Simulated scan of single mutants.
Amino acid sequence: MQLTFTFEREPILLQIRNRLVQIYGQQRDELRHEPTPQWVKAMISSRTLDAISDGAFVRLRGLPSWDMLAQMKTTEITPMIHDVTFAQNKAIHLAKSAQIIKRRRGTVELDFLADWPTQVAFDWLNSLPGTGPKVACVTLNFSTLRRPVFAIDTHVLRVFWRLGLAPNRHNFKRGYITLSNLIPNNWDADDLYELHWLMKYLGQKICTHERPLCGRCPLASLCPSAACLQA
């Protein structure tokens, strides 16, 4: 009698996380911003070095309250974030979104999202000008809300695209939908927070936009792009 054993393969995101934790260590942060400052920080940080966006965020946080964003003109916000990428566009989006939040909720505070289902909160944030899936996920996952959604930035999407897990390296919406379907059912908000930072570090240090260091990549054996990128 011949016995046949079937071994269930580990989910791909679990394989990725386990390999990257060995390189970069665990990424668990107990110090979280409240939802509103996290949203503001996410709004100004895209395609900008962390050191620069952090400085701009500190200047904005010096405002008497976040309600000020709904009262300020774009020309008043822009100088406060002048060194971030696309400063004027981000100032426009901040002002318009703050006005919408103020009109709908009476104040520019997002604490009320704690009482909403995750998908409803995501859709509400995603409807704000300049927010989109990335900022919505960062607000929900990185803040004290700690919701189980996966934040995808340029580095994360590029790595997943090269791994063959994302359909497009530039479409955050499609990437979010595709990758959300790969998340293990038992993962919580902290697991997704950790995966984001592990993938971001890999994208910044090894799987870079130009000349990726495939020979040093812990995911090379999982990556269909590794062979051609090294050729």
Rank of each mutant, 00 (worst) to 15 (best):
K73L: 12
R104P: 00
L60E: 03
T208N: 01
F122Q: 00
L140Q: 08
V135F: 01
Q88D: 13
R19E: 12
H33P: 00
F112N: 05
N171E: 02
F7H: 14
K41A: 13
H209V: 10
N185P: 13
D54T: 14
E34P: 06
Q26K: 11
T131C: 09
R103I: 01
K73C: 03
K41D: 00
R158A: 07
H209N: 06
D153H: 03
I183Y: 02
Q119E: 15
L94N: 07
A91G: 10
L3R: 15
L192E: 12
L3T: 15
S221C: 02
G175T: 10
I44K: 03
M1I: 08
K96S: 05
C214H: 10
I183K: 00
T208I: 09
R216N: 15
T74A: 12
I81P: 00
V40W: 01
T139R: 05
L145N: 12
F86M: 11
T139E: 02
R28L: 13
L219W: 04
T78D: 09
I100A: 07
Y24S: 06
D190M: 09
L179S: 03
K73M: 13
L60I: 04
C217D: 11
F122N: 00
F172L: 15
I183S: 11
I183D: 15
N181E: 15
R61K: 13
I44Y: 03
V108M: 14
P148H: 04
L192Y: 03
R9G: 04
A166N: 11
H170D: 15
S45L: 08
C228P: 04
H155G: 13
F142Q: 05
P184Y: 03
W39Q: 07
R17L: 06
V159I: 12
R19P: 04
L60H: 02
T154D: 07
V149T: 04
D191F: 05
F86V: 06
T4S: 11
L179N: 06
C228F: 07
C207M: 09
C223H: 02
F122G: 01
L31H: 08
P117Q: 05
G62Y: 03
A56E: 14
C214E: 11
K90N: 05
E210W: 06
A114N: 09
R59F: 01
P117K: 06
D54P: 00
N89W: 00
F150C: 00
F112Q: 10
W161L: 00
N185E: 15
N171I: 00
L125R: 08
I52H: 12
V120M: 13
A70H: 01
S180C: 04
R162L: 10
L94M: 04
Q71P: 00
P129N: 07
K102D: 15
G25C: 09
V108C: 12
L140D: 12
V58H: 07
Q38P: 09
S45Q: 14
L192Q: 13
E8Y: 12
L113G: 05
V135T: 15
L49E: 14
W161F: 11
G132L: 11
Q204R: 15
N181Y: 01
L219F: 02
L140R: 06
P224C: 01
I44W: 07
L213H: 13
S127E: 15
R158D: 08
G215D: 14
L165Y: 03
L63D: 08
D115F: 08
